[in-house]
Structure formats: C-alpha cells, structure tokens
C-alpha cells in the first residue's frame, strides 16, 4: 500500500493553485462580460452598410 494520502501538503498546494486559477478565470470571464455590456450600451448606434439606401446613411443637404 502506498502512503500517498489525499491530504498531502503537495495536494493542498495543488488544490490552492487550481482554485486560484479558477477564481482568476471566472473573474476574467465576468470582466469581459461586463465590459461587453458597457461597450454595447455606450457604443451608440451600430449600423453597418448593407447595400440598401437608408436615410440615416445619406449626407444631409448642405453637405455637412
């Protein structure tokens, strides 16, 4: 029988490292999600050219 116990100090260190990495990754995902929400909300109108004439894409009379 091995005396390779689950509560070995090495396992505690690995567990700490894995949970640390999990927390970092979850934090990163949450931050990217929040950033996306903020960028979309503050980004103004997002309207791409789709080969169709639209009043919002035409230059107003007077040239400006």
């Amino acid at each position: 029988m091995s005396n390779f116990r689950p509560d070995h100090e090495l396992h505690q260190r690995r567990r700490g490292r894995n949970f640390g990495l999990l927390a970092v990754l979850l934090g990163f995902v949450a931050l990217v999600f929040l950033l996306t929400v903020v960028k979309v909300q503050n980004g103004g109108k997002v309207e791409a050219f789709d080969h169709t004439a639209r009043p919002s894409l035409t230059t107003p009379e007077g040239g400006q």
Partner: peptide, 19 residues
C-alpha cells in the same frame, strides 16, 4: 515498490509563488 515521496523535495509552485 515504495511509491511514497517527500514533499520537501518537490519544487511545485503554489498560486502565491506565481503571484
């Protein structure tokens, strides 16, 4: 056949070491 090992010989880093 002894599979035991001494943790003091390992150099595996903890999360704090990377930080």
């Amino acid at each position: 056949s002894d599979t035991s090992f001494d943790s003091s010989q390992t150099t595996e880093a903890s999360f704090g070491d990377y930080f």
